[in-house]
Design a protein around this nucleic acid. Structure first.
Length: 589
DNA sequence: GCCGTTTTCGGCCCGACTGTTTTCAGTCG
């Protein structure tokens, strides 16, 4: 079955092959845009193609031809045009596009004039000197190619992406490093890190300065630089020892807002803004919004209509200000005011934590004091159930003693509600790991899948529906069990899960750990559109885990979550009222 | 190939840096 990612990959491949064969650039871009649309589409394309193919056309960037290709792909497992292109172009050539500094023109040049058809032949032609004989291949160009091939040999062909929790601390450190440079006025990170994507390809840092040389010098003194990729008057790029690329742009402070819009992206959002500017006789670039001169020969400089702040750019285009996390390609009407998204400061409770009783390294009391220090009114202690033996899951007897210990700490510490809960395994067949009699003794039940994470989608859907509809379950924990760059996890029918969660008043978790972020952004979008309750929890095993909240919030914002949707933002009485509503007789305080 | 608040045809975001060339092509974001 063709997944959304499969469709995206197929369109990307068509774009690569067209590009190498010298096809029209706009056609290539159209396929690239179609690929991004497939990747970002929350609905299952396979299901749409079978049940409502006409709806494919409603997706931004999908037209008559690409819609037909999706249907063809779903029905036959292949796309004739892609097959035909593969016959025309040697199989090893598209890989060359992934090398740093090599684009389609160079690949075609290598193919036509040096008869290079794969990376091994490229390596050979570099070493035997034959490459240097073709046009535009000077000493430096050949040296750069040699380095690009070496980098590919070292890291493999997959472009390296960094998980948000790995990238943001580096972005913070670079920003901090530049803040003290002479002449620095404002400094911030932009790009996909600012948009809160679960992985990022590189970091974009923006600085406004009245001394650009001081700014770039400071940047190049950041510790751990492996290689300087570019070093110009307004733009620098380096690769750090960790492999991540960091780009710096330096602008005058007057242009900081326009530059932030530009470098935050996404690309498609920027194009949308530019098209709107053009329709109004304006021009938008990273320096501001400008009136287009009536006389094309008139190149005198005019001051921008707007440039200083991001808000001013949106205002000048008669648009509401879009939060970075929603500046993606999702067919959104830019004129429609975006929701007021949840913020980290809205969170008042943590409902998923582990102590030394299972696999955490904090005691109950340490966890409670941590939650109190964050100003929370409630914390739930939810150690693993017995099936998670590798995590020292609690037997029923241990659980009962644990509940007593939790009550004792709550009374002793005071000033915060401490809930006795459990993260109960959802067994492969959908049953829960404790019987109902045991579950009824708990204030909060988080039900999560930990094993059998390669089940077929239909089986996984049935399994998770059992847990969602179980009358004693409050929260479905990390619903797919994915580990970013580690394992795919389950692929349940998310719409079915969300509809059931809505009916049963069960919350769906966004697990904040940056290796999980599960639910992922596209799933959250489905959930908010249906109106589900969302739980945003740090799954705390150690004190540091509490700091992962920012990643969960970013994912929630990308999915359009507003504070009211999220049970962790509710005040004490509303939260406890909901928890108790799934119990016969609520515990009295 | 996609798309439409001038358009169903004729547009399609825009600028910086690098390297190879003497005015620009290619890549990148």
């Amino acid at each position: 079955m063709a997944t959304n990612q499969d469709c995206a990959t197929a369109f990307s491949q068509i774009a690569d092959l067209l590009e190498i064969t010298g096809a029209n650039g706009f056609k290539v871009n159209a396929y690239r845009k179609a690929a991004r649309s497939c990747e970002n589409e929350p609905k299952e394309l396979g299901k749409l193609a079978r049940e409502a193919p006409a709806e494919l056309r409603a997706i931004e960037g999908i037209g008559e031809s690409t819609a037909a290709k999706i249907v063809e792909f779903v029905q036959t497992g292949q796309i004739a045009e892609l097959q035909a292109l593969r016959l025309k172009v040697p199989a090893g050539l598209p890989l060359l596009l992934s090398l740093q500094g090599i684009g389609p023109k160079t690949v075609k040049l290598l193919w036509d004039l040096a008869h290079v058809t794969n990376i091994d032949e490229l390596r050979a032609s570099i070493e035997n000197g034959s490459l240097a004989t073709i046009p535009r291949m000077g000493e430096k160009a050949v040296a750069n190619l040699r380095e690009a091939v070496a980098a590919h040999d070292a890291s493999g062909s997959q472009p390296i992406r960094f998980r948000l929790g790995e990238a943001l601390p580096i972005a913070d450190a670079v920003v901090e490093h530049l803040r003290t440079a002479r002449g620095t006025v404002r400094v911030a990170f932009a790009g996909s890190a600012r948009r809160g994507r679960d992985t990022v390809g590189d970091l974009d840092i923006l600085v406004s300065s009245d001394d650009p040389t001081a700014a770039s010098t400071a940047f190049l003194s950041f510790p751990g630089i492996k290689k300087v990729l570019a070093n110009g008057a307004t733009k620098c790029a380096v690769q750090l020892n960790s492999g991540i690329q960091v780009d710096l742009r330096i602008v005058k402070d007057d242009a900081f807002g326009a530059a932030m819009v530009y470098f935050t992206g996404s690309k498609d959002h920027n194009i949308g803004l530019r098209e709107r500017a053009i329709a109004r006789g304006l021009r938008l670039n990273e320096y501001g919004i400008f009136q287009i001169a009536k006389d094309p020969k008139d190149d005198s400089e005019r001051p921008p209509i707007a440039s200083k702040s991001e808000d001013s750019i949106y205002e000048a285009l008669d648009l509401p200000v879009w939060p970075p996390e929603l500046r993606e390609l999702n067919g959104a009407d830019l004129t429609k005011p975006p929701p007021r998204l949840i913020e980290q400061s809205d969170i008042r409770a943590e409902l998923h934590t582990h102590t030394t009783a299972s696999d955490g390294n904090l005691t109950i009391e340490e966890l409670v004091r941590l939650a109190k220090s964050r100003g929370f009114h409630t914390i739930a202690i939810t150690d693993h159930s017995r099936a998670s033996a590798q995590a020292n899951g609690l037997t029923v007897e241990r659980l009962l003693r644990h509940i007593d210990a939790i009550r004792e700490v709550e009374a002793r510490v005071g000033g915060i509600r401490v809930l006795a809960g459990s993260e109960v395994d959802i067994l492969a067949d959908g049953r829960l790991d404790y019987d109902d009699e045991t579950l009824e003794k708990l204030d909060v039940v988080v039900a999560s899948p930990h094993t059998a994470l390669r089940q077929a989608p239909e089986v996984a859907t049935r399994r998770l529906l059992c847990a969602i509809r179980h009358p004693l379950v409050h929260i479905l924990g990390h619903p797919t069990g994915r580990i970013i760059q580690g394992r795919e996890g389950l692929s349940p029918d998310m719409e079915a899960l969300c509809n059931a969660a809505m009916e049963s008043r069960t919350a769906l978790e966004i697990n904040c750990h940056w290796s999980r972020l599960d639910l992922r952004d596209t799933h959250v979008r489905v959930a908010t559109q249906i109106g589900c309750m969302i739980a945003i929890d740090c799954d705390i095993h150690s004190a540091d885990d509490a700091d992962n909240l920012r990643y969960g919030i970013a994912t929630a914002r990308r999915g359009g979550v507003v504070a009211a949707d999220c049970v962790n933002t509710w005040n004490e009485s509303k939260l406890h009222g909901w928890l108790a509503s799934k119990r016969g007789s609520p515990r009295s305080m």
